[in-house]
Design a protein around this nucleic acid. Sequence first.
DNA 1: CGCTATATTGACCAGAGTCAAGCTTTGTGG
DNA 2: CCACAAAGCTTGACTCTGGTCAATATAGCG
Lengths: 261, 261
Amino acid sequence: MPKRYDRTASAPTLEFMRCKDCDMYGLCRLASNGEDANVTNALVKRRFVLRRGEYLYRSGDSFHEIYAVRHGSIKTYIYSDDGKTQITGFHGHGEIVGLDALDGMRFASEAIVLETTNICEVSFPHFQELSRNIPELQNQMLAIMSHAILRGQQMMLLLGKKNATERLATYLMSISRKIDKNKLSLPSYKLTMSRRDVGNYLGLTQETVCRILARFQEDGIIKVEGKYIYFFDIDRLTELTSQGRTEHVADLFEPSPRCLT
Amino acid sequence: MPKRYDRTASAPTLEFMRCKDCDMYGLCRLASNGEDANVTNALVKRRFVLRRGEYLYRSGDSFHEIYAVRHGSIKTYIYSDDGKTQITGFHGHGEIVGLDALDGMRFASEAIVLETTNICEVSFPHFQELSRNIPELQNQMLAIMSHAILRGQQMMLLLGKKNATERLATYLMSISRKIDKNKLSLPSYKLTMSRRDVGNYLGLTQETVCRILARFQEDGIIKVEGKYIYFFDIDRLTELTSQGRTEHVADLFEPSPRCLT
DNA sequence: CGCTATATTGACCAGAGTCAAGCTTTGTGG
DNA sequence: CCACAAAGCTTGACTCTGGTCAATATAGCG
């Protein structure tokens, strides 16, 4: 049974994790009055480490902190009434989680760590206090939340309108965009989540994920090596994200007042 | 071709539309310092009417206002790269739209009116100004946005894990919860959107929507009469929202450190 | 080194999509 | 106010994508 809140372990090497890439950087910089945010700052009072299988928070936990992933990765998910699980996101370096708890001040989702992960913690009351003096901090937060809403809408589109191939291709593209472009070697990524998790996230089964990854490999688009993916042909992958079988042509025009689709 | 921004028409009867039911009521009350928000108030400077087929906003429009539906209904949707449409929500009395534009200050989605609809408009700069003096206003806004994020997560669950029957049942239940419980007559609701729209929203085709509505009617759960739905058996409908074929039993227990599903 | 979780691949199946035909409702104009 | 056209709805027959079940293979942890 996974432990919770074992936040004493030592940190992994973090030199190459720059705050500048973090979604929270805008907030941290504002809070620290422009000073270097690369050290613990006015906003982030605490950092800690969790290990694979530990929870960052659980559904129903009362909400006091917002978290950003500094290094590592986590998954967040919700339950249906009958116990089905839907993974709502994978979050890596620089991504913020816990924003779904501001309504009701309790976490609606759960967050579990996929590998040894370094977390920045922002106390929400502290954030509120700071933002009384720094109105721009509030705008930043609204923008961040708005962005989370957009992400949800994109997932609705993916789950509601795309087929299995398009879903996988879209997912792989979202990964490839996160890869550091400055690296000299072949673009590659370690999937810290299982195939089953990927399938769950994309509304597919693990078998379908396997089969389509195999097909992408046959077609020379990627190479799959266990948990590692190597990206060979980003252009072809981009094409596959939406295979363009556009609906009836009529839909491309403005709908007439009566034709609201 | 639908007109935009024809905001001069006369309002429908609104006596029974109470601000108290509105998602924006908390904001309006705070902004008006506790006074009656039922008239145009410190936050809402303007109300206007749109007719079926008119746009409230379009994708790419620059963002200045947030809107609340006072009376009537609208749909919001986004496009995929290849022109597919995903409806992201139907919004009726008391619901807020436009929150997806705070990131980037441009609307990412479109909003089109499904029937003659009365809109409350909140200038965002004005909101920002007010909230410098009323910090609680900011918290309200964060809660509202958090709620929108939760809605997105619930839709991911619906689209990723529920079958057609469960999706329709879930949708009908969300409608039935909106119906005024004080009415003496049989609970009923007018679907202002087409079957095709319902299908689009739920990741189904219009044919599937028709068939399942027909089946629900055969089973005595609802009665379908053109655009009107009458709710006979809410309990049975609730059961159908998640048919409980729970995954492997193991999933019900705490995952072991290695078994992260 | 062995055990268990995870990944892969194949055979088969079913739920929902597609296509098509006919029906109903709604809006428009004479 | 009625007739007509267009949009929307319904139902049936058939298809196909992706799910289910099952059998191995592989990998990672203790």
